[in-house]
Design a protein around this nucleic acid. Structure first.
Lengths: 116, 116
DNA sequence: CTATCGTACAACCGAATGGTTGTAGATCAG
DNA sequence: CTGATCTACAACCATTCGGTTGTACGATAG
């Protein structure tokens, strides 16, 4: 596993980047990787600069990649990054599950398909 | 599935809550559900009030539950909430994967175990 | 009853967020 | 060359964040 040693700051950036509806949507829109920054901007009710900033946040979180094509910058979603997010959740889950195990007893409360 | 219709604001709150190392740690510490707010606060280099606020954020994201026990408030991690986070990531992933499908061609770039 | 502990809440503060406008440099079209 | 387009970046602004201190109140201990 290459994506393994995620430090706190990295995880912070990752979840922070995902904590915004516009950014989550950009991740989806940029999946096919053929949209420029301004092309993206046209899809949202805000300025190009605002989108530039969102893309920058996504980029520094590793969720997206920007490559130049002529005068435009094509934004492409980074496939591995969502996997990394999953991995983080798994890790979190494993940790509190470990806590539970060590304390025992309360295990009956997480029948694996629980809901509230 | 009970946890299904997560609206944007809810997802925002969820990921935002997870985008802080202290809060993520609280989620783990509170797994066994026998720690009060002040007991939690003793584990971090910050004031009780700061922890209260973190717990409030986690609570409004549904990641944690607070129940009164005498004069203390016991903080307990909500098992279903992490599952909800997973579900959100799955949904995101499904969406951009759908985009890819519709565009076709680039599929070879995500061999399912990819890493930058 | 009194003192202490755990919590709640308001007020404040500096830093970061999420948006804007304005300016300027590259690249492309005619 | 000229003009339009795309991007970058600085500056600004209001709001939110993450922390603090201070005050108040209910619950517990002596």
């Amino acid at each position: 596993m290459v994506v393994d040693q995620l430090d706190d700051a990295e995880v912070d950036r990752l979840f922070h980047a995902l904590a915004d509806a516009t950014r989550r949507d950009i991740v989806v829109q940029a999946a096919a990787g053929n949209l420029s920054v301004s092309a993206l901007a046209r899809r949202y009710p805000m300025s190009v600069t605002a989108i530039q900033k969102h893309v920058a946040v996504l980029e520094s979180a590793g969720l997206v990649r920007k490559e130049r094509r002529g005068r435009e910058r094509i934004v492409t979603t980074e496939p591995a990054s969502l996997a990394a997010a999953h991995q983080m959740l798994d890790r979190l889950e494993a940790m509190w599950r470990g806590r539970l195990d060590r304390f025992g007893g309360v295990l009956s409360e997480i029948p694996k398909g629980d809901q509230t």
